[in-house]
C-alpha cells in the first residue's frame, strides 16, 4: 500500500473514531478543549507508532498463543513511559487528561492495530499505519473538541491560546454548558460520524462519475 492509501484510510474511510468506533471512551470523555484533544491525539499517536513498530519487529518471535498478553505488556510499557514523561515535563496536560493517559493501555485502537496490522506487516508499513491511524484519531478528536468547546464554553483553543483561556467567541453566559458534559460528547460525536459518512458518500459518487467519464 502506498502512503496515500494509508493516509486516506486513517483519515476517512477507516478512521479509528468515526468508522471503526474504537477508543470511544477517551473520545467522549476528554474532548472539551483543543488542548485536551491535541494532547490526547499526540499521546495516542506516539504510543501507536512505537507499539506498532515493536510488535511488527517481534511478530515472528512472539508465539501466537501468547500474542495478546505480549502486546498488552508492550503497549502498557509505552503508555507508562509516556505517562511518566508527561508528568515530568508537561504537567498541565497530564493533569487535564488525568486518568485517561493510563487508560490508553486499554484503548482499542492500539491493540486493534497491533492485531489487525502490525502482527502481519513489516516494520516500516506498521510505523506508517500507526502514524496514519493516529493522525485520523487526532483529527476526529480535534473536530469534536472544537465543536464542543465552542458551543459549551464559547471559546476556541482552550488550554493553548490566549494564556490557556482560549479565544472567547461566544460571550459568557450564552454557551450551552451541556455541550461540555457527557451529553454533548455523545451528541457531537454522532454528528461528526454522520458528517464523515456524508463526506465519504460524496467522494464515492464523485469517483464513480470520474470512472464513468
Amino acid at each position: 500500500m502506498k502512503f496515500k492509501d494509508h493516509f486516506k484510510e486513517g483519515l476517512l474511510t477507516k478512521n479509528p473514531v468515526t468508522v471503526q468506533l474504537l477508543g470511544m471512551c477517551s473520545t467522549l470523555a476528554i474532548t472539551t478543549s483543543l488542548f485536551n484533544g491535541l494532547g490526547m491525539g499526540l499521546a495516542v499517536t506516539v504510543i501507536l507508532i512505537c507499539s506498532n513498530v515493536l510488535i511488527s519487529a517481534l511478530r515472528k518471535v512472539i508465539p501466537s498463543q501468547i500474542r495478546i498478553a505480549a502486546y498488552i505488556v508492550i503497549i502498557a510499557g509505552f503508555v507508562t513511559i509516556v505517562d511518566l514523561l508527561l508528568q515530568a515535563y508537561l504537567q498541565a496536560l497530564s493533569e487535564s487528561l488525568g486518568v485517561f493517559i493510563p487508560l490508553i493501555v486499554v484503548n482499542c485502537i492500539i491493540l486493534g492495530r497491533a492485531e489487525a496490522f502490525a502482527s502481519k506487516n513489516g516494520v516500516l508499513a506498521s510505523a506508517l499505519d500507526g502514524l496514519c491511524q493516529g493522525f485520523g484519531y487526532t483529527v476526529a478528536l480535534v473536530i469534536v473538541c472544537v465543536i464542543r468547546e465552542l458551543l459549551g464554553s464559547g471559546t476556541f483553543g482552550g488550554g493553548i491560546l490566549n494564556g490557556g483561556e482560549g479565544i472567547r467567541i461566544i460571550p459568557e453566559g450564552f454557551p450551552a454548558m451541556q455541550m461540555v458534559m457527557p451529553v454533548g460528547g455523545f451528541l457531537v460525536l454522532g454528528f461528526v460520524i454522520a458528517g464523515s459518512q456524508w463526506l465519504m458518500r460524496r467522494l464515492e459518487r464523485r469517483n464513480k462519475k470520474k470512472e464513468a467519464v
Binding site: L58, V61, I62, P63, Q65, I66, A69, A70, V73, I74, A76, G77, I81
Partner: peptide, 15 residues
C-alpha cells in the same frame, strides 16, 4: 511461551 513472555516482560520492566 513462558520464556518469550518472561523476556518481553523483563525488557519492558527494565525500560
Amino acid at each position: 511461551l513462558a520464556v518469550t513472555l518472561l523476556l518481553i516482560t523483563g525488557v519492558v520492566a527494565a525500560a
